[in-house]
Computed example of a mutant assay.
Amino acid sequence: MAHSATKRSDITLSNCGYSKVLDIISSKWAALVIYAMENGKIRYGQMLRRVEGISKKMLTQTVRKLERDGLVQRHITPTVPVSVEYSLTALGESLLQPMKTLRQWGRDNYTQVVEARVKYDFVGTPDSVPTSPITSS
């Protein structure tokens, strides 16, 4: 009797570099907040105005998460009132180019994605497409 080796998954969430990166930038706001800092230091209020639709609470949570991940740093200037600016760290800046590439892919291809979705929704799921009928003679 042949011995069957146990097949091990070679793609896992715990070891996948893609999923780890997506965990960092895939929140609704993270990429937009990173883009808000791509030109250097920016004040909180400026970011709030630049990122359309983000609430103060969500901006604060997003900046804190990115700071925790080592992508953003906070600069405090002891003025009255205290001035706080945010910028990308070297690690955060190293993420800009891959994100810009992904953004360009979206600009170049998203229309095709929308067309595919419309076609899929119109035709239905692959499971709902009838198979070729068996005809009797």
Rank of each mutant, 00 (worst) to 15 (best):
K65A: 09
K56P: 02
D69Q: 11
L91D: 12
I54Y: 01
K100E: 15
T89R: 03
S14P: 08
R74E: 13
R50T: 01
D69M: 10
V63E: 03
V33G: 02
L71Y: 08
R103W: 14
R8C: 09
L13V: 11
L71N: 09
S14F: 10
L88S: 04
H75P: 07
Y18W: 11
S9E: 15
L71P: 07
L13R: 10
M99S: 04
M58A: 09
K65N: 05
S19E: 11
M1A: 15
F122I: 04
W29S: 01
T111W: 03
N15E: 14
V51C: 11
Q112W: 05
L96S: 13
A116N: 06
G40H: 07
T60R: 13
S128H: 01
Y18M: 15
R74H: 02
K119I: 02
P126A: 10
R43S: 06
P78R: 12
D108F: 00
Y35G: 04
S14V: 11
N15W: 06
Y120R: 07
N15P: 05
R8P: 07
G17D: 06
Q46V: 08
K41N: 08
S136H: 13
E115C: 05
D127I: 06
D127Q: 14
V82C: 03
G92C: 04
L91A: 09
K7D: 01
Y86L: 00
Y44A: 04
A36F: 00
T62E: 02
M58R: 03
V51F: 07
T111I: 12
V84L: 01
D10E: 15
G106P: 09
D127N: 13
S87W: 00
K65W: 04
P130K: 03
Q73F: 09
A90Q: 14
Y44F: 14
Y110W: 14
D127A: 12
Q112N: 15
P98D: 03
K56W: 00
T89W: 06
T131Q: 13
S83M: 07
V129M: 14
A90G: 13
T131Y: 06
D127M: 14
M1Y: 11
D69K: 11
K20C: 05
A2V: 08
M58D: 05
V82E: 07
G92A: 04
D108Y: 00
S27G: 15
V63F: 07
K65R: 14
V21C: 09
M37K: 00
V33W: 01
S132C: 12
G106F: 15
W29D: 01
D108G: 01
R107N: 09
T60Q: 14
R74C: 08
